[in-house]
C-alpha cells in the first residue's frame, strides 16, 4: 500500500508506471498501472486519452479505504486469508466498488466469497447483510416459505 500524496516526481516512477486516482473522500492515490488496468472503467479512459497520468482520475463512488482494500487484494492475488479479515460492510463496499470499477476477476472473487458467507444462513441474515427491507406481507412470506420448504432445514445460526 502506498500513500503517495504530495509526491509528484514522474521521472522516479519511470520503471513502474503509476496512475493517480482520486477517491470519493478526496484522497489522491498513486496506483500501479497493472492494477489500474484491471479496472475496466479507468483503463478504457487511459487508453483513449493516453494522456497525463498525473491528472488524478476521479472515482466518486469509491472511498479511499475501499480502494486500499482492493489494491491490497489484487496485489496479494486475491488471498482468501486476507479477505477473511474483512468486515461485512467492507465486503459489500468492495463488491459495490468492484462492480463500479468493472473489475471482472475481483467481482467473481468477491461474489464467491459473499456467496460462501451466505451459505446456509437464514432469510433474516441475508436481509440484514444487504440491508433489505422485507416488503412481503406475513401471509405472502409464509406462502413463499412454504413453497421453498425443503431449504429451511439444518440452517446455521446467524
Amino acid at each position: 500500500m502506498q500513500k503517495t500524496e504530495g509526491e509528484e516526481s514522474k521521472a522516479e516512477n519511470e520503471e513502474v508506471k503509476q496512475v493517480t486516482l482520486m477517491t470519493s473522500d478526496g484522497v489522491k492515490m498513486k496506483v500501479e498501472i497493472s492494477i489500474v488496468y484491471e479496472m475496466e472503467i479507468v483503463r478504457s479512459f487511459i487508453e483513449v486519452n493516453d494522456a497525463d497520468h498525473s491528472v488524478p482520475f476521479p472515482l466518486p463512488n469509491v472511498s479511499s479505504h475501499t480502494l486500499d482494500l482492493i489494491i491490497e487484494l489484487v496485489k496479494n492475488e486475491y488471498d482468501d486469508e486476507f479477505m477473511k479479515t474483512f468486515s461485512h460492510d467492507e465486503l459489500k463496499e468492495v463488491l459495490v466498488a468492484a462492480n463500479y470499477l468493472n473489475m471482472k476477476t475481483l467481482l467473481d472473487f468477491i461474489a464467491t466469497a459473499i456467496a460462501n458467507l451466505l451459505e446456509k444462513k437464514s432469510v433474516e441474515f441475508i436481509r440484514n447483510f444487504f440491508n433489505i427491507v422485507n416488503d412481503f406481507t406475513p401471509e405472502e412470506e409464509a406462502e413463499i416459505r412454504k413453497t421453498n420448504e425443503w431449504v429451511f432445514q439444518d440452517l446455521d445460526e446467524d
Binding site: A111, K120, V123, R127, E140, L155
Partner: peptide, 22 residues
C-alpha cells in the same frame, strides 16, 4: 452486483435468498 452473487450461490441459499423480499 447481486445478480453476480446470485450466480455464485448454491441452490439452497439461492432459494433462501428468494424469500428475502418481493
Amino acid at each position: 452486483a447481486l445478480n453476480l452473487v446470485a450466480t455464485c450461490l448454491d441452490p439452497k441459499t439461492l432459494a433462501i435468498a428468494s424469500c428475502v423480499s418481493k
